[in-house]
Amino acid sequence: MKAIFILFIIALLSNSPALSATLKLPECLLEQSLETEVHFYISEDVLNEYSPEFVKAKIDSWIAYANTTLKNSCIPTRRSATHIEYVSELDSSWFQDVDVAERLLKNELGRQVPETNANGHPIFNAIVFSNWLNSYKSQYCGYASSSTFFFTIALNCPDSVLEHEIGHLSGASHDIKTLKEGVEAFDLEEYWMSSYPPGKPYSLGYVCAGRGTIMSYEDDRMPVYSNPNIYWDSKICGDAVTADNSRVLTEFAKQYLVR
């Protein structure tokens, strides 16, 4: 009876729409990749909850997810964690304000924090806290600066958050559903012009067959950027005119590769 029950469960699972659906990725011909460094500055109070080994494993998991997303999306970029530094306890109530968190970090370190390496390639700087829920009025699990290569992230954030925030720093935007939430008269053109430099009209995330690309706010997200050559369950996961963040990040990478 037990064996029959197990077989019955397997049969049910094999007929599940979620399991029968497939992710179709484009073929990639990447001759050269931009190697991007990610530096992690970690508030020492995280060690009250987590061991250094756990923190390192979490960072490795974030980086692995980021590189899977970039590879799946045919983006000529790789991430590497090249610097991990613990700093005296930072006030986590400023988690949601990256500019303040950046100033607190630099004040604590007593030095400037590089945003480019010797080759002129970008360095993305993560300010890491223990728990994003501890922040005053924080609604999200990560925040990206609008003017520098800094972002905040917490150790209890999903693996997708690191690449999501770096996506913002590289010019990628949320999906249109997310952008319209809570805005009575959302104007996309006005939204593009409100950022500096102005956002590209094809930099939206996308939702396909109920699953979101990495820049969406869907509960079920896939390790891909919006791309009109990617399909989930036979549904296109991007739009060449409005939602092609693979193109956005490829263009971001190429501006450094040509130097």
Rank of each mutant, 00 (worst) to 15 (best):
N15D: 10
L19G: 02
E190Q: 12
E44L: 03
N134I: 13
F150H: 04
P76S: 04
V38M: 04
T36S: 09
A172R: 15
G120H: 02
K58H: 14
G171L: 09
A144K: 12
D220H: 06
P52M: 04
T178A: 14
S216N: 11
R103P: 06
I214Q: 09
E115F: 01
L109W: 01
E190T: 11
K200S: 08
D239C: 01
L109V: 03
I236D: 03
L13C: 14
P158E: 12
F40M: 01
F54L: 08
S14G: 08
P223E: 09
Y225K: 08
Y65R: 14
S20D: 08
P122L: 09
C157H: 05
I123G: 02
V258I: 12
N245C: 09
W192E: 06
L47R: 10
K200L: 13
I4F: 15
I63V: 10
F129Q: 08
K2C: 11
V128H: 01
I230H: 07
N134S: 15
R79S: 07
L155V: 11
L249P: 09
Y140G: 12
N229Y: 13
K56P: 02
D99Q: 12
T213K: 07
V161H: 05
S138Q: 10
W62S: 02
R221T: 15
E35G: 01
D97C: 01
L169G: 11
V258H: 10
P122N: 09
Y140K: 13
L249W: 07
S80N: 11
T152S: 10
I4Q: 15
K71V: 11
L109S: 06
D220W: 10
S16P: 03
V113G: 03
A172Q: 13
S51E: 08
S14P: 01
A209C: 09
E37V: 10
K137H: 04
S226L: 04
H174S: 06
S194K: 08
G120V: 02
T68G: 03
V161T: 11
F149N: 14
P76D: 02
I166C: 06
E163V: 15
T250N: 06
N107Y: 12
K180H: 00
T213D: 12
K137I: 00
Y225M: 13
N67R: 07
L30A: 05
I230D: 11
G167H: 11
Y86I: 04
F124H: 15
G210L: 04
P223N: 14
T68K: 13
S80A: 14
R259P: 01
R79Q: 10
S138F: 06
H164P: 04
E181P: 00
F95A: 09
F129M: 07
F124Y: 15
Y217K: 07
G212F: 00
F252T: 09
E189C: 00
N131P: 08
V98R: 05
D187K: 06
K235C: 00
L29W: 08
P223Y: 12
K254F: 05
C237A: 11
W94P: 02
